[in-house]
């Protein structure tokens, strides 16, 4: 089977990794780089537990071939925040208690990061449409929406 050395920049760190053709990006992150924040949930791109940002766009890392990610910039939940401090999205999730079991949380936080980068002041339909691909089985949707709205408000206030 094809093996190939790929270059993956993950959370700003450049990695040279030899991967197999059938290896998914999620497997590379979890098994080779010990970045276990992204989780396997459905393995079908439905639940979003494995969401990471690839060149700033959210992808299901369970369904991206590692080789296809060669040369890409990957951001995982571990790469958020700086110098040990939490990212404002992470802080907002805590503030609004936007999780229970939190298995979906790393993926959701990245989905929110993308959402706010695209729509700093999202409308309600945008909130729901752009987060619809992330399942939270504990049912923390209300708190998650509150967290995102608070971030949008803050962004607006900072702009004014």
């Amino acid at each position: 089977m094809t093996r190939k050395k790929i270059i993956l920049s993950v959370n700003g760190v450049r990695n040279e990794i030899e991967v197999e053709a059938k290896e998914t990006l999620l497997e590379t992150l979890r098994n080779r780089l010990d970045l276990t924040g992204a989780k396997l949930g459905c393995d079908q791109q439905v639940c979003g537990s494995c969401t990471v940002l690839m060149n700033d766009l959210p992808v299901s890392s369970c369904s991206v071939l590692a080789m296809d990610a060669d040369g890409c910039e990957i951001l995982t939940v571990e790469g958020l925040g700086a110098g040990g401090a939490l990212h404002p999205i992470q802080q907002a999730f805590i503030e609004h208690g936007a999780f229970q079991c939190a298995y979906c949380t790393p993926g959701l936080i990245l989905a929110v990061k993308y959402l706010l980068s695209r729509f700093p002041r999202p409308t309600e339909p945008q909130l729901r449409h752009y987060l619809a691909g992330n399942i939270c089985r504990c049912g923390c949707h209300v708190e998650i929406l509150q967290a995102v709205r608070s971030l949008a408000r803050r962004a607006q206030e900072n702009q004014l």
Partner: peptide, 22 residues
Amino acid sequence: QSIKRLESESKVSGELKYLSDL
């Protein structure tokens, strides 16, 4: 009191380990 979950930070940072992470 509605205090936050004690493990909140490790949950949002992705550091909290679930069994399949180990």
